[in-house]
Design a protein around this nucleic acid. Structure first.
Lengths: 201, 201
DNA sequence: CCCGGCGGATGACAAATGTCAGACCGTGGT
DNA sequence: ACCACGGTCTGACATTTGTCATCCGCCGGG
C-alpha cells in the first residue's frame, strides 16, 4: 500500500483527487493539507511514502515544501501537480528533489501511474511542460536583475524599487535596462511579463 | 435524478469532481467538456438539468457559455465554479443568468447541496466572493478607459496602445491618466494591476 | 433648448524612465 | 599578478510618461 499525503488549497479539488486515488487498491491518502506549513507538519507526523503537492499554496509554494521535505524526510518522494506550468518552476522543482511534475490536465489514471512510478524510485515529468522548459532555456538574468525585475513587476516606480531593494535608483535603472535588453522587451513592464511567463522571476 | 453537465479544462479535476458527484444517489454526471464550445455542443445534445462550468476555459469563458446556455436552454440551470474569484466575473455571471457561483475551496458536500438548490430553482453565491464583490463595487472606468487600460496591461508603450486602439497618443494618455486617478494608483501599470484584481478589465 | 458628460484631440510642462559612459570594489580563474 | 565579470554607484542625456487646460462634436435628459 502506497501512503500518500495530499496538499492543495482548494478543498473541492483536494477531496476529489483523494476520492479518485482512494479508488485504487494500492493507494491510500493518509493526510490532506490546505497550506504548505500544514503539509510539512503532517508529513513529519505521518511519514507518507509520496507527497503530492500543488504548486500554488497560500503560504509557501509547492516547490519550497518539496525541497524542505526532501532534506528532512529523504524517504518521502515528492510530486508537484499544477494548473499553470511555468518552465522555471519545473527547473526549481527538479533541483529541489521533486521526482514527478505534472499538469492538472492529465487523467486520473496517469496520476495514479505516476504515483506508483515515483514511489518505485522513478521520475516523471509532463512531456509538454518539459518541452516548454527546454525551449524557454535558462534565465539570462543575474540574481540582482531578477530581484529588481520582480519588484518592478508589481508596478512600483523606480524610487520605491530602490528603497525596497536597498539600492540606489540609478543602479535599479541600470539593472532594469539590462533586463529589458536581455528579454528583448520594449520596457520594464513588458520585460517583467516576459520573465514571468518564462519562469525567470 | 439530477442530470449534470461538467465543463473544466483540467482533466484531473473534471474527472475527480465527476467521481465525487457520482457518489451522490440523486446526482448523475451525463457529460464532460474540456472547452466552452464542447460544453455548448453537449448541452444542446444532452439537455442536462444543471451545467457546472469552470470560469476559465480555453476558448470562451464560463460566463459566456452560461449566458448562451441561459438564452438557448432556459430549463438548464447554470453554475460557475472557479479558482480565482474576481468580483467583476460574479456580476457578469449573475446578469447572464447564472444561479450558483462558488470557489473551488468549498467542500464536495457543499457543491452537491448547491447543485440541488440550483436545480430546485434556488440561487447560491459563495458568501466570501459576494462580500468581495460588494466591497470592490462597480467599475468607475468608462468603456474606453477600460479598453486602453487592458492594452496597457500588456506593457505596451503609449504609441502602440494608440495604434491598436486607433486613438491619438495624447488621448491615450488622457484616458490612462484618468484611470490612474480612479484606481488610486501611482502609474498605469499599477492601475492595470488593480483594475484586474477588481475585475474591471 | 440647453447643459452635462463622454469620446476624441491638441499643446505645454514637469516628472519618471531608458540608455550610456565611466568609475570602484570583490572574487574567481588563468 | 592579472583579467574578466558581477555588483554598485554616479552623472548626463534623450525619450516617455503623467498631468492639466482647453477645445470640438455628439447625444440624452430635464
Amino acid at each position: 500500500m502506497i501512503r500518500i499525503l495530499l496538499a492543495d488549497d482548494e478543498h473541492l479539488i483536494r477531496g476529489a483527487i483523494a476520492a479518485l486515488l482512494g479508488l485504487e487498491d494500492d493507494l491510500e491518502v493518509v493526510g490532506q493539507a490546505a497550506t504548505g506549513a500544514e503539509a510539512l507538519r503532517l508529513a513529519r507526523a505521518l511519514r507518507p511514502d509520496v507527497a503530492l503537492l500543488d504548486l500554488q499554496l497560500p503560504d509557501l509554494d509547492g516547490v519550497t515544501v518539496a525541497t524542505t521535505l526532501h532534506a528532512e524526510l529523504p524517504t518521502c518522494r515528492t510530486m508537484i501537480v499544477t494548473s499553470h506550468g511555468l518552465p522555471g518552476h519545473l527547473k526549481r522543482a527538479l533541483t529541489g528533489g521533486v521526482r514527478g511534475f505534472l499538469a492538472k490536465t492529465v487523467s486520473a489514471e496517469v496520476l495514479a501511474t505516476v504515483v506508483r512510478t515515483v514511489h518505485a524510485g522513478g521520475r516523471y515529468v509532463d512531456p509538454q511542460l518539459a518541452a516548454e522548459a527546454i525551449s524557454a532555456g535558462d534565465s539570462p538574468l543575474t540574481v540582482r536583475e531578477a530581484d529588481v525585475l520582480t519588484l518592478a513587476a508589481e508596478g512600483a516606480p523606480v524610487d520605491e524599487i530602490a528603497r525596497r531593494a536597498a539600492l540606489s535608483p540609478g543602479t535599479v535603472r541600470n539593472y532594469l535596462s539590462s533586463a529589458v535588453g536581455k528579454t528583448g522587451a520594449a520596457n520594464r513592464h513588458e520585460a517583467a511579463r516576459i520573465a514571468r511567463t518564462r519562469g525567470w522571476i
